[in-house]
């Protein structure tokens, strides 16, 4: 059924923010195709009137009271930052929406 194209793989890579190399695109196209082909059997049950399970345990309404807990110190928060400035995470120029 599937037949995943190189273009589709490239699209997925953009969605997933992976700068895949050309040879990887090729390689993954084949492998994803195989895997999807093998697991597509699950759609046999697509029409069945069965509720989907998102959580293995039937828990509901797990909540916490609205009470302040100690935060990390800014030093701790920034301890792993590849770059920082003015107690903020420093990142390259953001292209996104203005």
């Amino acid at each position: 059924m599937p037949g995943i194209t190189r273009e589709e793989v490239a699209h997925l890579a953009r969605l997933a923010r992976l700068e895949l190399k050309p040879e990887e695109l090729e390689h993954f196209a084949g492998q994803l195709d195989d895997i999807i082909g093998a697991v597509a059997r699950v759609s046999e049950v697509a029409d069945q009137d069965v509720p989907p399970t998102s959580h293995p345990l039937p828990l509901t309404n797990v909540m916490r009271p609205d009470e302040v807990r100690p935060s990390l110190t800014p030093e701790q928060a920034l301890s792993g930052a590849p770059a920082q400035e003015q107690q903020r995470f420093k990142v390259p120029q953001i292209l996104g929406e203005e």
């Binding site: 928060a77 400035e85 107690q87 995470f89 420093k90 990142v91 390259p92 120029q93 953001i94 929406e97």
Partner: peptide
């Protein structure tokens, strides 16, 4: 956004994040 003319994204050299 730092380094741009008016603190906008456009023209900024980098950005600083406060969570």
């Amino acid at each position: 956004h730092v380094g741009g003319a008016t603190g906008r994204i456009h023209g900024a050299s980098h950005s600083l994040l406060d969570y």
